[in-house]
Structures are given as structure tokens and as C-alpha cells.
């Protein structure tokens, strides 16, 4: 399975993270998104007319939307990541996948603006980002009061993986997360998942690892 990838892209990281959590090995093809803008080249548009990354190719299957890639990977290797089977739960997961698009066009664009000079109305991006975060905070606080931690149901799902990257990277775009304690705790839960991988701007939980030499009596 080939992922056309950019190391700094939140959407590409979504797919890398999902694959890592599921134990799927991806063949990564680096696309010179910045500074080369290779994703806008004619050759790349032959693969994806939208000229966007990531692109996932598995045999004849070509996917150009990261949320669709999450569904595909989960269907192959971990259907429990699709959420619970009830119509309500399945639909709510889809709702979060669409919500992750809003995160991308607000927090994600603010980050590309601040970091890589993308043109954007930065104030509008950040305002829209805060609105998304308030929605997320309200939901996650309710979830915590019910004794749960993930977005949907009792276990992590593709909903969490879809929303996590742009939220965790929000400070890169000048949106601080200090006012969102439930969001912060949820992020910690995602970062604690077995086989979690980091990306630049999202560090692993050093503080949860055993200290070097502890119990190194052997």
C-alpha cells in the first residue's frame, strides 16, 4: 500500500498514525509539497486531479480523502476502529469525520499560514478554529462526566484519529489549547495508545515512559 506523503501534513499524519496503530506497513512516497509544490504538478494531478495530498494507492484503489483512507485501513485491519454498530454510533463517527474537515480548514490553514506562508485570513481561521475547539471541549467534557475519554463510544475510533492531528498542532497556527482541558486530556489519551507515532510538532509522551535505568538491575 503506497501513501503519497508529506511529513508536515496533518492529513498525511492521520493516515500514518492510523496505519501504525493498526500495524499496517505503508510504503511512503515523499512528495515535495514545500517548497517544490510537487502536488500541483501535472504528473501528480494525473494521480489526483484535486492536486492534494495524501493519496493512498492499494492496487486499483486510489483514495484522495484522508477520512476515506481511515475507513479503508480500519475495514482491512481493525473494524473495531469504525465505532459501534448502532445506526446512531455509525452516523456520529461520520459526523466527526466531516468535523475533521472543519478543523483542517480552520486550525490547519492557520498553521500553514503561520509556518509555510500560505495565504489566508488568519484572524478568520483562528476564530473558526476556536469555535471548533469549543464544540469539541463541550463534547469531551460531557464524555468525561460519563466516565469515557474518546469521542465516540468506549474505545478509540477513526473519529479520534481524524480529529486529533489538527487539534494537537493548533499551537503551530497560533491557537493555544490551554483553555481546553478536556481536549488536552483527550489528546493525552490518544498519545498513550499502543504503537502511537509522533510527527514534527507532536511529541511522544516521554513522561509516561519509564525513566532510563529504572529497574535496570539486570
Amino acid at each position: 500500500m503506497i501513501l503519497y506523503d508529506y511529513i508536515l501534513s496533518a492529513s498525511c499524519y492521520k493516515v500514518r498514525l492510523m496505519a501504525a496503530l493498526l500495524g499496517i506497513k505503508l510504503d511512503l512516497v515523499a512528495v515535495d509539497f514545500h517548497p517544490g509544490r510537487a502536488h500541483k504538478s501535472a504528473a501528480f494531478r494525473d494521480l489526483n486531479p484535486a492536486g492534494s495530498i495524501p493519496v493512498l494507492v492499494d492496487g486499483d484503489l486510489v483514495l484522495t480523502e484522508s477520512t476515506a483512507m481511515l475507513v479503508y485501513l480500519a475495514q482491512i485491519a481493525g473494524p473495531q476502529w469504525l465505532g459501534e454498530a448502532s445506526p446512531q454510533s455509525a452516523a456520529r463517527v461520520q459526523n466527526w469525520l466531516a468535523f475533521s474537515g472543519r478543523l483542517n480548514s480552520s486550525l490547519g490553514l492557520a498553521r500553514l499560514h503561520d509556518m509555510l506562508h500560505f495565504p489566508a485570513d488568519i484572524t478568520a481561521c483562528r476564530t473558526a478554529g476556536h469555535l471548533c475547539l469549543r464544540e469539541l471541549e463541550a463534547h469531551l467534557t460531557q464524555v468525561r462526566l460519563e466516565g469515557r475519554i474518546f469521542l465516540e463510544g468506549t474505545a478509540p475510533s477513526i473519529a479520534d484519529i481524524a480529529c486529533f492531528p489538527n487539534v494537537a498542532l493548533a499551537p503551530d497556527g497560533g491557537v493555544e489549547l490551554r483553555d481546553y482541558p478536556s481536549v488536552r486530556l483527550w489528546q493525552r489519551a490518544v498519545r498513550s495508545l499502543p504503537q502511537f507515532i509522533e510527527m514534527p510538532g507532536i511529541h511522544r509522551l516521554h513522561d509516561l515512559k519509564p525513566a532510563p535505568h529504572s529497574g535496570a538491575a539486570a
Binding site: D5, Y6, I7, L8, A30, V31, D32, H34, P35, G36, A38, M115, P171, D172, M199, P200, G201, H203
Partner: peptide, 22 residues
């Protein structure tokens, strides 16, 4: 190593620093 891989490697390293620097 393809050019894009070299760029990704260096951007990965530098962007790991960015959030610390800020």
C-alpha cells in the same frame, strides 16, 4: 536518496524544534 526524501528529513528535524522555540 530522492530529493523529496531529503527535504522531508530536514523539515521533520527542523519542525520538531519549532514548537519548542516558540
Amino acid at each position: 536518496t530522492p530529493q523529496a526524501d531529503l527535504i522531508h528529513f530536514q523539515q521533520m528535524i527542523f519542525l520538531q524544534d519549532r514548537s519548542i522555540l516558540e
